[in-house]
Design a protein around this nucleic acid. Sequence first.
DNA 1: GATGATAGCGGG
DNA 2: CCGCTATCATCC
Length: 742
Amino acid sequence: VPSSLAKTDSLIAVAVPVPGLGVLSYRAPGRRAPPPKGARVRVPLGPRIVTGIVVDRQLASATTAELREVAAVLDEESFLPPAVVDLALWVADYYASGPGDALAIALPPAARRGRATAFRTVTVAELDPGSGPGEPRGPRQRAALAHLAAAPAPIGLPALAREGISGATVRALAAQGFLRLRQEVVERDPFAPDAAPWTVGGAINPPPLTAEQTAALSRLSDAADARRFITALLHGVTGSGKSEVYLALARAVVAGGRRVLVLTPEIALTPALAGLFRARLGARIAIQHSGLSDGERHDQWHRIRRGEVDVVIGTRSAVFAPVDRLGLIVVDEEHESSYKQDERPRYHGRDVAVMRGRMEEALVVLGSATPSLESAVNADAGRYARVRLTTRVLGRPLAAVRVVDMRREYAARGAQVTFSRPLLSAIAERLARGEQTLVLLNRRGFATVVFCRQCGTSIECPECSVTLTYHRADRRLRCHYCDHAQRVPRRCEACGGEYLEQSGAGTERLEADLAQEFPAARLLRVDRDTMRRRGSVARAIAAVARRDVDVLIGTQMIAKGHDFPSVTLVGVISADVGLGMADFRAAERTFQLLTQVVGRAGRGTVPGEAIIQTLYPQHYSVQAAAAQDYQAFFDREIEFRRGLRYPPALALVNVIVKAASLSRALADGRDLATAISLADSTVIVLGPAPAVHAKMRGDYRAQLLLKGARRKPLRDALHAALATRPDLARRTVVDVDPVSVV
DNA sequence: GATGATAGCGGG
DNA sequence: CCGCTATCATCC
């Protein structure tokens, strides 16, 4: 501490919204008590003033002699709950991001951009009780006054305008003293029916629980009542009624005076779940996800912060919701890779949820029909309590699964075939019976590759090392990694050849093929291209539930979580899309996706059927998914992970070095690899090698993998190596516990 | 991430 | 020598 500082000055540690910057120290104005942890402060940073979050009331490590003074204190009390600040700091440390980045995701939208709170207000008019008798002269003013006199509560100006009473009339009455006008805060309501049609599910009366559900509930309730940190893995087959267990458990926790956080992997799953919770537990529910408008999100955040809410439902960032007295955190479909954020901070919502449960001594329930290898291993090791649901509700059977060998289809009918004969006849049967079919292909667009018949060159993105996908709707080639889009060239740019051929079908092509095969069928395609607009996924789901759709075609968007009782057939166009990826999780992802989508069939009274098309009918992911045998898959997969030393057998950190050329990236990668090994010889360093996507958005990329028994030595060695290479640090992406290394 | 400093460039 | 743009180090 510099000796020049007056003794009376208090020093505070502040996280500022600058990536790569640590916590900074400032002098707090001496007159008042220093702002508490979680308060927002305006602080000078170089030539500008930024909004930061107080992280601690004592000095961080200051590197300069002179400490600058806080410019303004925005909150006298914590804005972010101190517990959330601690959670964000843990995230910053564990995932090797800056504290500013981690805290930014915990803030509501306006505060994130350094602005003050942003409540929406409306001007309301009410009669002035102080105004004596007397009548305004004009007929409009008299009518307005009569209308307000009859109203039980103040009325907003927009509502009055709808009654034909203009703002001018109201203001004239206010000026004469007949009315009083004031500003009232109105909440933007994401539950409003036009904002999100969450008409699915929502049965008000809970169905009777099965014996298994009752047993699971009682074990979990006991764990919640213990009021200490416990993580439970709720491993229940598809259709076994995990949601009912969450609901009953949440109700018990709320009745005990504590609060509940529910995480779902997808925005599209929140409305149905929120609707269900609302129907059963009442209105003290908030939702938090990036699909809300900034205003809605802001209002929901403040409702939670004020303690007006018992249950928060949202996607991964909701794990930072400012809930206090937390008793239960549910992570639904815990195996989903969407819980991992693919930009800084690269945190995993499930793992942060477990840490939050630990910090706040709450019960954490991880639910899945296909648990991640990580969670299954943790349960095997006794770190998580395993709770099982092995049967579907109402004794409904799991779907019968048929695997179709596409090599035979190609041999018989050519390699351009998208729908096998067994799948076509099964769809025809469903159409005849008025039942629904769900068709999955995890690839959007019309054709995934356009290539020259003469020289074989395929058209690549100029900025990324990937082929462009042809989208027929806009008749353009598009890159699925950057925003690049271009017209289809007339001739090959490499050799001038005139015949450009398309290959590799996406969902757009499936829709066209099906329309030709079944002209009368009502088709609906659900992928990122058709579901661009807000609320469109919810509308699509509602249309399926109303049975306005015969065949639903889509990407993994449709595979997750939804409950479609009238779907009796599921067709997987290609189980091989994921298997082809050069990633250690390829088999796991394929097994999970297949099991999940097969689980969408036969949830109603008619038994379901699933048809999986593949070129590798013997692959263990396909076989295990077809047999709906999690254990068989787990046994094979964990053997593979142990053998090749991949998670969860070891900790893994993926490091990407970006540079203007591949040779430069590789040279920097070699330098970094050497420095890491020098810093800690126990760290296993693989690479550098050109990344699978060696060029992205114009940057060339080299890849390093760090492996070790524990994460901390990996991070420490990496930090030590990057500390002496600040220029390299700025071009390096660090991914701790990567969900994918491609 | 945003900023001011600095280097590199063509035009007068 | 000026004004413009691209690149870079710095931020308690």
